[in-house]
Design a protein around this nucleic acid. Structure first.
Lengths: 160, 160
DNA sequence: GTGCGAATACTCGGATACCGCGTGTCCGAGTAAGTGAGG
DNA sequence: CCTCACTTACTCGGACACGCGGTATCCGAGTATTCGCAC
């Protein structure tokens, strides 16, 4: 089970915007240069964030992306959902019902598959842990260990 | 992020052994027939479970697989690890350090990446939820909703 | 000097190839069971 | 009837193709800026 690389890229891009903390947009090219990533592929991820309503996009010269919400209203769950979609990791194919279950009394299937339930429970714990952490939290954690980050990022992007 | 199908197959096979609850082995062909799965591919998964120490394999005629431990000592985490490996879903590539970080003071990197930490925390919650559920628990849950399961499975495999 | 309009350069956005890993399959080495002969 | 050795058939185990989804890229549509010109 491997998570898409786009999630990491997206969070770092969002984090950059959180540090800049103004309404001036940042273009794909600027993001790519500052993060050392492939511009075209990063653009694809940013578009997904726009579709999910996490970013606003501004076309034209001097255009780019900016946060659509306050960082404390963007959870990591939002980002993962935006990039990976809403489908759950574990996909129950109802093996027991389709296997020897064909000759089995129907009373054996009154409830959803126990295996499915167990895996779903674990996945729920994961989703809740993601939903409990906002972009603001991550930023605060980063600031804690590296005090000058915001100042450095703002100066990198020539913001006063 | 999608989990390998082999995990579901494996749990159902282990669950079958838990219901049989004796030392007589079950062959790949028997598993495949009862679960309605491709024998060759299922065999691949069972081998992984053997390597992980969850199953014992008996070669030769009338051979097959049997549980290597009691069902209450096999967690869902064990199964997932056996099939998917030990690598974590989120892979931190140290974007900040490799990106604009090249011109950044080293003091900004005294601690592991905040993004990495946040994702790891969520993943830990998932792993703990998996580790908290044993094969015996899943069986008990299944028995709860379908009382006659064990009897049915044992009769299917011609066990007295 | 000021307002207007067209040219321009830069942006996002989606449509298009590439590639690695999970999926699926096959055949060979090895072993326990079964069988038959000999004692 | 019992023991033993051979044959046999079945098992696991790993090595070999296939296909799909993530990865990576490119080019076109659209817009704010900018420059030049007329007033």
């Amino acid at each position: 089970m491997r998570m898409s690389q786009g999630v990491e890229w997206s969070i770092h891009a969002l984090l950059t915007l959180a540090w800049l903390d103004d309404d001036a947009p940042v273009s794909t090219a600027q993001f790519a240069a500052s993060l050392g990533l492939a511009p075209s592929y990063l653009n694809k991820q940013l578009q997904a964030l726009v579709r999910a309503g996490l970013l606003d996009s501004l076309p034209g010269a001097k255009g780019g992306f900016r946060l659509a919400k306050s960082p404390d209203r963007i959870t990591l769950m939002d980002v993962v959902t935006a990039i990976e979609g809403r489908t759950s990791a574990f996909m129950c194919t109802e093996i027991r019902r389709e296997g020897l279950g064909v000759s089995e009394p129907a009373s054996h299937f009154t409830q959803p598959c126990a295996v499915h339930g167990a895996m779903q429970r674990a996945e729920l714990a994961w989703r809740q842990a993601l939903a409990a952490q906002t972009l603001a939290d991550v930023r605060a954690d980063a600031d804690l260990h590296a005090k000058g980050m915001q100042k450095f990022v703002r100066s990198y992007f020539d913001r006063p």
